[in-house]
């Protein structure tokens, strides 16, 4: 039997370092993806928590793509951490005061034409545009985040840009 915990602990630190390095970008990406800074922080927290369960090899191989993938998954499925109660019983439970993590998202919360245009896209196209133009991920990383091939990622981004442009031009005029 091999002591697994002895090797997990350094990986957790490595993950924490990577997450701290990309935490601002993750929070920005999630904020523009879901339009609410509070929810975005919850999703980012859930994504990092989920990424801490990834195998260390995947984290080393994917790097920040693993974090973006986990955050994208949390945003798509609205996974929060700590999880919120669900079901009818939540109506009879006293909601514990959520630990809000303070972030500086005053500018990101402000709605503008670009964000309205982004809101008209579907989730995958919006995520692809944000990943590429906001976070600066390459196609290979975006393919890992969106769980598709690089060619599909290219087509997705191209279509998203066309749609975003047409929408933006309509809204701006």
């Amino acid at each position: 039997m091999i002591n697994v915990s002895a090797n997990v602990q350094p990986e957790a630190r490595e993950l924490a370092g990577t997450a701290r390095q990309h935490l601002d970008a993750l929070a920005s990406y999630a904020t523009h993806l879901v339009y609410d800074p509070g929810d975005a922080v919850d999703f980012v927290t859930a994504g990092i928590y989920h990424a801490s369960r990834y195998p260390p090899a995947r984290l080393r191989q994917d790097g920040r793509a693993a974090l973006y993938r986990a955050v994208t998954r949390a945003c798509r499925q609205e996974l929060r951490y700590p999880p919120r109660p669900s079901g009818p019983k939540r109506l009879f439970q006293r909601r514990s005061p959520a630990a809000r993590i303070p972030v500086d998202a005053a500018g990101a919360a402000r709605m503008n034409t670009v964000k309205r245009s982004l809101a008209m896209l579907n989730f995958d196209r919006r995520a692809a545009l944000l990943l590429r133009d906001l976070s600066g991920l390459d196609y290979r990383e975006i393919s890992r985040v969106l769980e598709c091939s690089p060619d599909a990622t290219a087509r997705l981004i191209a279509g998203a840009r066309r749609e975003f442009g047409s929408i933006y031009r309509e809204i701006a005029i």
Binding site: A16, A19, S28, T31, V114
Partner: peptide, 26 residues
């Protein structure tokens, strides 16, 4: 335009708080 969207800044205290909530320590 998309790249010019405003960014979110998470200070160190909030980051530590987030990591402590998740259970990892950086």
């Amino acid at each position: 335009r998309i790249g010019s969207l405003s960014r979110v800044h998470v200070d160190d205290h909030a980051a530590h708080q987030l990591f402590a909530l998740v259970g990892i320590d950086e």
